[in-house]
Computed example of a mutant assay.
Amino acid sequence: MREILEPNHRFTLPSDSEMAILSHILRHKGSAQPDIVQATDLSQQTVSRLVNSLLDRGAVQLAGRIPNGRRGQPRLKLEIAPGYAYALGVALMTDAMSVVLMDFAGQVVDYQHIEMPKMTRPAVFSRLKDSVSTFLHRHPSAQDRLFGVGIGISGYCLDGRARYNPPAALDDWAKVDIDQLFTDALGLPAWVENDGNAAAIGESLLGVGRRYANFVYMFIAAGIGGGVISNQRLLRGVHGNGGEIGLMLPRNMFELPTLETLLASVRDHGIQVSSISEMLAQFDATWPGVDAWIGRAREPLSRIASSIAALLDPEAIVLGGRLPPELSAKIIPMIELYDDARREEPRPLPRLLVSETQVDACAIGAAMLPLEKQFFASMV
């Protein structure tokens, strides 16, 4: 067993086999031992032994019985124990920061969205420390079981690990070891990921990924990016920049389908909003300028989605990021997946789906980073 000493609590980290069990239970919102045996390469005796160890350590808990549909005793249901560990998730955006406190079962315990005139390090860490203090005052049980912090940021990874090249509004975070900055500020282990990749991890564990092992997440915010989930694992690429779907569009040939261009469109049609955050807080899908933006977004999004379908052949393409769900629902019917319609049975195409993670996709995915890296990485 691996052990890690945190500021206030010693966690016994799971073995690879225990990770597989924890991942299965989390992804299926509870499971019985026979189902775990069937889903993994582990024997019944091994599963029983490891489950008992996880029960003893408080990582899983019993949660009633599951009817087996046949004669005989119902099976005992196992669930992730929410209070075993907690993690923070931080989304660094061009005009705001979101902070999430998440429990071990992937449930949002507390959340703050903070509009930020300037995204400098002093400003971010000052507000972040206030948020963390507020969270722990409201939820004192998390104090001694706060495991780590995950950070999601827009931009390209430079070293495959923690150095990013973000938009101009995030200049203070460019080309520095972001994980170390957060560890120094909060005294917690930190992991950082591109916002699209972070959101894809959250979707894989807590949303669409519970039904689809292979999908591409389209992250639409001030820019457009994404993340690729292959066999329930994030496909990061050699340099950590897998899923940069916005780069599929030839430069200067299309208006990018982003929330920046949506903001400009609704402003041009008389809606008085000063920022993306303000627009999203008041958003109405019937605003003038919304349908015009969707009309312009149709071709670039169709090109991106068709390229994804042709290159990766996923089960699903998920629209998310900071995109309001009601807007995603209006966009999806407009997207065309190009196909040659050969004979009477065309090739299978991916489903187009609205993201199922709630509250804040990037912050939720960021909060899952510490838990995924150390507890749920062996996906099954």
Rank of each mutant, 00 (worst) to 15 (best):
residue 114 I to Q: 14
residue 318 V to C: 05
residue 29 K to D: 08
residue 47 V to R: 06
residue 66 I to Q: 11
residue 327 L to E: 07
residue 40 T to N: 09
residue 121 R to L: 08
residue 268 D to G: 12
residue 229 I to A: 05
residue 39 A to F: 02
residue 219 F to A: 14
residue 333 P to N: 07
residue 319 L to G: 06
residue 311 L to N: 11
residue 216 V to E: 04
residue 202 G to Y: 07
residue 213 A to I: 01
residue 251 R to E: 13
residue 262 L to P: 10
residue 7 P to E: 04
residue 193 E to W: 03
residue 260 E to W: 00
residue 148 G to W: 02
residue 79 E to M: 13
residue 339 D to S: 15
residue 168 A to Y: 08
residue 107 Q to P: 01
residue 296 R to I: 12
residue 109 V to F: 02
residue 163 R to Q: 15
residue 157 C to K: 09
residue 12 T to I: 03
residue 20 A to R: 12
residue 203 E to A: 06
residue 344 E to I: 08
residue 343 R to V: 05
residue 166 P to N: 09
residue 8 N to W: 01
residue 341 A to E: 13
residue 31 S to W: 02
residue 93 M to Q: 14
residue 210 R to Q: 15
residue 190 A to I: 03
residue 209 G to N: 07
residue 56 D to G: 06
residue 93 M to S: 13
residue 82 P to K: 01
residue 234 L to Q: 03
residue 256 L to S: 12
residue 16 D to L: 12
residue 128 L to C: 05
residue 341 A to P: 00
residue 160 G to I: 10
residue 272 Q to D: 05
residue 321 G to C: 10
residue 82 P to A: 06
residue 128 L to K: 02
residue 320 G to I: 10
residue 108 V to W: 00
residue 208 V to D: 02
residue 56 D to T: 14
residue 168 A to G: 02
residue 300 P to G: 07
residue 303 R to Q: 13
residue 334 M to T: 13
residue 276 I to F: 01
residue 96 A to S: 15
residue 322 R to Y: 01
residue 269 H to L: 00
residue 7 P to W: 01
residue 226 G to Y: 08
residue 139 H to W: 02
residue 219 F to G: 07
residue 125 F to A: 03
residue 243 G to R: 12
residue 230 S to C: 06
residue 351 R to D: 09
residue 203 E to M: 08
residue 362 C to A: 14
residue 254 F to A: 08
residue 352 L to I: 09
